[in-house]
Design a protein around this nucleic acid. Structure first.
Lengths: 302, 302
DNA sequence: ATTTGTCATAAGTCCACCTTATCGCGGCAA
DNA sequence: TTGCCGCGATAAGGTGGACTTATGACAAAT
């Protein structure tokens, strides 16, 4: 025996409502025999009569009534599937698992989360803050949807879009205020405090100084940019900060901030996601939000 | 765009569960391209991607996950439809609206209801007690499922099956005990107490006496057999009772009961239902229950 | 008795769906 | 790199199911 179909249930519902084959067929935009056949097939599939066909009227049997109640629930649920799909066309819905590197997260996330939840009501945002390599791995595993990292990542399976660039600034103890800004060569002679191994920002800073990672002698590892700034404030050394961290980290510390003159060190921050992800359009939307958030922060700081 | 089908939802569920087109196709007992096409069609219908097709694995999108939850509910509900039908195959289920004439109801119903509820657990019995004409009308209107009345009813649209026959007995005041039993002609000279117009039992009694209904002079109307017996007990007249009523009505009344000698008046009690009713088989089942109940009563009384 | 209304059945057409065969592509090993 | 392999998408063709119109059957109404 054939399985039952949604079509049959729809026809059944129409006939139960109309109590008349002809009118029900009209309502379904089919011919009366087509409806008759489908109803008959449905009854055979169930092994029970659903309607009592009298010459005067077509009436539901008892079982038909019980059946109709459940069928209506089912049809409503099915129609809601369509609504659900339509609703999630333009609006990002459900859970968004976003990864962010530690040298970005504290400064950018508050604004991003605020804007996203405001624009996409009902969006549940999970944040993962860790190193780029782990983010990439978790992205590939499907444990993350997207991540905000420093470009380039150069993973062939990932799409990357640029969000913004930010310069690095030199942070020195407060008493160094006004001293000439060292160039890269001079910097190499100073005690440069950087994050521990694995942070991309560390590599970027080293790269700017033309140093290789195999020079641990002159480096002290700090666990966060905030810690580094505190150490600088204590006169232990100097460090580099991405511009975005300036507002938060140097506000209440006795340090002096200096911009480099000729060659501005910088990095590009971008968003990445699996090339296969069907949420690409939504991610582009989100990237706009992030870009705007970052711009707003920059404007507000200057 | 075509509507979505249960088949698509079933395929979708299999693919969501297996995460692999080939295995899901096997599970559905179809070829892999067939499943691919149906999934594609489903996604097009919804306007959204349900799966993220990576070279490594096939994963649900967020929307796909939300979708799967609802789909599973729907499929479960649909499968329950089949169970519901199968469960109500042989067992009478739901509501049974049964009509009974007043000269039967008080005596037969307790036993019937007891037996029916015992045999068909979960059966909800509604009883309607009124005159045959109204029962027939309500039956035709679909407000009753079946009725127990005196045959024949001779409605072409109704099926009738005999349940049992019962004789009428003469009920006289207690002091008439032992007096010769009058024949029909003698009965016509006595003060015969009968039910009001419309009761079939009244017509049956009159018919036995060869009287026509247009003889109100010698008749007094009582509202129930019980009332009639009380009036007889008070010496107001005599009446006829169906045998079935004997036990209940004459137990605590000072009346004498006499059986007629030669020509036993009687009536046939039967069950009726719409010819179009698909519950015919169940009604036959019920009629057996009723028959047994009546026999048990008769045996118990003698 | 004829007509009307209503549902079931018949016959034929067409499209949806399934099949097998093949392509395209990314991953993997020599 | 090059060829192989696994897997999903695509192509082409066949079959059955579902729809159509036309007609039958039956009861009710006139």
């Amino acid at each position: 025996m054939t399985n039952l179909t949604l079509k049959q249930l729809r026809y059944f519902e129409a006939l139960a409502r109309q109590g008349h084959f002809g009118r029900a067929a009209d309502a379904c935009a089919i011919s009366q025999p087509a409806l008759s056949m489908q109803i008959k097939e449905l009854e055979e599939t169930l092994g029970t009569e659903l309607f009592e066909r009298g010459p005067r009227q077509v009436r539901l049997t008892h079982f038909g009534e019980a059946f109709a109640l459940r069928v209506r629930d089912i049809l409503r649920a099915v129609d809601e599937l369509g609504d659900l799909a339509r609703a999630s066309q333009h609006r990002l819905v459900g859970r968004l698992r976003i990864g962010v590197i530690p040298t970005i997260a504290p400064y950018l996330l508050p604004a991003i989360i605020g804007n996203l939840t405001r624009m996409h009501e009902g969006l549940e945002i999970h944040v993962r803050e860790t190193l780029t390599s782990k983010l990439v791995q978790e992205l590939a595993d499907g444990r993350l949807d997207t991540a905000i990292v420093a470009l380039p990542v150069s993973e062939p399976s990932l799409t990357e879009v640029a969000l913004f660039s930010e310069n690095f600034v030199l942070v020195r103890p407060g008493e160094d205020e006004g001293k000439p800004v060292p160039n890269r060569e001079a910097l190499r002679e100073m005690r440069l405090l950087l994050l521990e191994e694995g942070h991309c920002f560390r590599d970027q800073a080293l790269s700017f100084c033309n140093m290789h990672s195999a020079l641990p002698r002159e480096l002290l590892d700090g666990s966060s940019l905030s810690t580094l700034v505190q150490m600088v404030s204590a006169g232990i050394g100097v460090t580099l900060l991405p511009e975005m961290a300036l507002g938060v980290e140097t506000r209440s510390a006795s340090v002096s901030v200096a911009h480099f003159q000729s060659v501005q060190p910088s990095r590009t921050i971008g968003m990445i996601w699996r090339k296969t992800s069907p949420l690409a359009k939504q991610f582009l939307q989100i990237s706009d939000v992030v870009r705007q958030s970052a711009d707003a922060m920059r404007d507000h700081r200057t």
